[in-house]
Nucleic acid binder design. Sequence first.
RNA 1: GCUCGAGUGGUGGAAUUGGUAGACACGUUGGACUUAAAAUCCAAUGACCAUUGCGGUCGUGCGGGUUCAAGUCCCGCCUCGAGUACCA
Length: 938
Amino acid sequence: MGYNFLEIEKKRQAYWAEKKTFQVQNNSDKPKYYVLDMFPYPSGAGLHVGHPLGYIASDIYARYKRHKGFNVLHPQGYDSFGLPAEQYAIQTGQHPELTTKTNINRYREQLDRIGFSFDWSREVRTSNPDFYRWTQWIFLQLFDSYYDKIEDKAKPISALIAVFEKEGNTSVQVECDVASPKFTAEQWSAFSEEEKQAILLDYRLTYISETEVNWCTELGTVLANDEIINGVSERGGFAVTKKKMKQWSMRIGAYAERLLQGLDKIDWPDSLKEMQRNWIGKSVGAKVRFQVENHDAQLEVFTTRPDTLYGVTFMTLAPELELVKTITTAEQKEAVEAYIEKSAQRSERDRMADVKTISGVFTGAYALHPLTQERVPIWIGDYVLAGYGTGAVMAVPCGDQRDYDFAKHFEIPIKNIFADTDISEEAYADKSGGVKLQDSDFLNGLEYKAAMKAIIAHLETTGSGEGTINYRLRDAIFSRQRYWGEPIPVYYKNGLPVPLSQDHLPLVLPKVENYLPTADGAPPLGNATHWAWDTKSEKVVANDLIDNKTIFALEMNTMPGWAGSSWYFYRYMDAQNDTAFVSKEAANYWQDVDLYLGGSEHATGHLLYSRFWQKFLFDLGHLPVDEYAKKLINQGMILGSSAFMYRKKGSQEYLSKGLIEGQEVEPIRVDIALVNLSDELDCEAVKQWQPQFAEATFVLEEGVYKVGREVEKMSKSKYNVVNPDQICEDYGADTLRMYEMFLGPIEQAKPWNTAGISGVHSFLKKTWRLFHNDETFYVSDDAPSAESLKSLHQTIKKVTEDIEQFSFNTCISAFMICVNELTAQKCNQRAVLEPLTILLSPFASHITEELWALLGHKESISQVEYPVFEEKYLVESTKNYPVSFNGKMRFTRELSLDLSPKEIEQIILEDEQTQKQLQGRTPKKVIVVPGKIINIVG
RNA sequence: GCUCGAGUGGUGGAAUUGGUAGACACGUUGGACUUAAAAUCCAAUGACCAUUGCGGUCGUGCGGGUUCAAGUCCCGCCUCGAGUACCA
């Protein structure tokens, strides 16, 4: 009987399930540790070999921490709202709930097979009403809050109302919509209830606004900035255009500074922090106001270079700006309108594609320079973005390359305010210092830093501007015109949103016949016959009852994908609670996530939004900390290796890879299941595979059809998905677990390749044999040899260090060396093999659990204490140490490690050979580092 | 363009953070066991030269530098990957 992994794994998994080995309690004498994975979206393709990479790493760490005496929370769940299930529903009419259930069941089977130590009693599903009830609850909290800039935190809106009643809004410092009007306390109390609500809406942390959104016609929904990649939708790759729509937004901008500062407190990868910093995009500068000539309007610009104010020769406004229409002169009206029309029609992608083309139109209007009162022409140009800063820039062609190019193109004068610089070819944008200002009145002779200080002070005293900080981070659009998401718990009364009371949550998704938008363009929820709110019975009722007195229309948009994932990690702490999203006790016990593992593709999406919600819930006192994940590790993606066949243009003839040179061919993806390990295609199988290939003819080279290969993301549509099931069948889950870890550092992306899997597999077979004499289990109780103890303790040391640093690949190398050594030493003593089993159990969990039982233990190995490293077993050994003289002469001596550096130095100096090499010279110094190289400097 | 990160054998990747470069594994070659295969075990494996003296030379993308000592630090390039994209 050899290593029968199939039998062992089945048995051990049944044992874990029966004993509920990995269930964890919310109290313990042990210290807590929370290991979290980014939960998967259950897609129809099933789990592929890339998914478990992170799960295996976190599982190893969770198991290690259990051995080290921690009470470990290691849960799993599903991010089960999302587009693919809905798209599938549109195509087939099958309810997304059904597809989602089927997919989840398949995921669970696959996850179980790999033997993870998840506590499934705490499972969450974002599409489950018991869960999204609390997502809706958090929405209501945001609706009921505003952001106080003085205290720098969110507070209940009731506090703001109190302020309005006392002093109006003329002096409050809170985050709100820029367009919100000013009023006094008297005016406030004179407003009608409706007027008050309309004003308050501008201040809430989730608010409705008419904003320019990224609209994707094919998907029929708006997209957030992070859902757009290279100007097209992340899902599906469809075109995205700008469109004005009334949308729910989340005031994440209020948290920009805290999100930035918070990064310094958390142990996340630098690259990821950098991405978030760039996304938040803090820039320090000033706001400057220009009076428009012969007009009431003032033009406010944001600039990071107020020191160059004297270099302004024109202004540029974003074409979308409302102000443009009012200031344009009659002569220019036609040209300006044509330009606005043209730029509105361009899609995001077009706009990005030709950043080089300079375009713009003169409005005919002039602004007055706030310092010199000179007339400055006002232009519009689509290089200025409406959404950033004030949507207007003061153009300083001598100091900014884009302004420079624009000025050159339209022959606008350029004024050089930098002394001793040449701007005949390009702008001088360097602000590192050394260059002094000229033609700048009181700024003359000053360098960048001093000039900044002086001009801001001047602007502030004259009232024509002030120092400001601007952020690139925009408020997050929260409405999606989709069916398969959380309903927003709000109904509309006289056009204003009214939140449902939290007692009426969850507001459950209604049944619909059709998952597409309605005929008049309303979101899919418009298809529901029962989707209106009766304020009398406080129930959802039929739409056709709407009477605008007691029955009102419910919100038809749903929440975006990131809503549920922004707080799910707290639900695991208290998954069954139906009175709170998490109890105070549970949140206080678990506090936060100690280790979070997931992909870096969520850097500017989920990982930013969840930090925002965390800070918000912390502000309101619902959570104990304002950063939820102390440490984060990005696992690299495992990529697929797609296979291609090459169709000769306009024919049904397919050429083998070696024959395509000089031919016009189209590469066509083919399922990698139809290709063998030597890249040879099964042509008959291709004909069966899809009807379009039934008539295909294949041109072979040397009797076979060779496919081309390309490394890309694993996806069902690329036919390159490798599922872990087959690996488990052929080699076992333990081999899969160890092999994925052995591939390389977890942070690194790498293509999937099973070439080296036999090495890991034979390691497990060797380990099994270590415990067996011929076919029978045999472990002796004799005292082990010093040699074996040395091997063991070297391994304890190395493995522990490596696990702490998440260097699992080198860790596995250490196991391999150890088992090879012990095999050579014929070691079969319990005193060595037992600790080794514990060491190995985070990695090869099934085989070690089995061996542990064979060793006569009743309890699960997962709860056993980790072996202790003892230096004394290593000290007795000797090792060869090279001694080098000036880096040239080398020889070796045997030195004992337990000698002190001084003693080693003495031995070397008395050594005959050393003396010979020194050739009578006296060494200047001897560098002795225990366990390292020893150098003698002549 | 800007911001990060990375370039090491035929391959995946190690290197105690300035101290014998190439651990461990795959692959390849040779051998043992076997009727044979599988499985297993042993040996060799950076390149070049010398190989009936067990040694030498060169080697971590390229060019310089610091140091007794550089894959590792500094300066200047090249290539690849990721993120971002008219952010004023």
